[in-house]
Design a protein around this nucleic acid. Sequence first.
DNA 1: ACACCGATTATCT
DNA 2: GATAATCGGTGTA
Length: 200
Amino acid sequence: MTEPVLVEQTFFLRDDVVSIALELIGKLLIVKNQGVVKAGIIAETEAYAGIGDKASHAYGGRRTTRTETLYRAGGTVYVYLCYGVHHLFNIVTNQENIPHAILIRGILPVNEEAIPENFRDRFEAWNGTANGPGKLTKKLGIHAEHNAIMLNSGSIWLYEFPESHPFEIVTTSRVGIDYAGKDAYLPYRFYARHYKPAKV
DNA sequence: ACACCGATTATCT
DNA sequence: GATAATCGGTGTA
């Protein structure tokens, strides 16, 4: 296993949110809370394609206190409370004022040897599964205060494994967005074939 | 295996 | 006042 390298902001400034969502599968997410480090491999994602996407919070160019984060530059973290119960973690993509984002829906456990050396000291492994957007934020300790922070700036990092060979990917429509009309059928959801999502 | 349901609250109308 | 990018539990099969 080679040492993971940081994913640069330029990756998130690209305008193709759907392919970025696919490319996020297999990348390494690291969260540090009060010195404690938790991590996971991204295994399931969904793209939300901005003002033209009925499933997006920014559909129609809606700008509110909550959606303001979506209009930030690619690489910004968007966390919001869903059903009054779960915090959901997204990564904003594209240039400032273009509210694209990717919902991270599932992660796989990762062992200490796979994460960068400087995080191993206070690494805490977790077990079980985190196949659901609300479950993974709980596992990693992602919360409302992470909203609007920048990736790789001291709390949440994204790494990739340069020499890893890509996971086999399954593409489906998105989950839980029946209100989005025909956009509910768009093939904007991706997951690793060897990962078992809560919903197929 | 699948259907239904209650929890719980910030956000939006 | 209604809604929501979910989850875990309960019930039926």
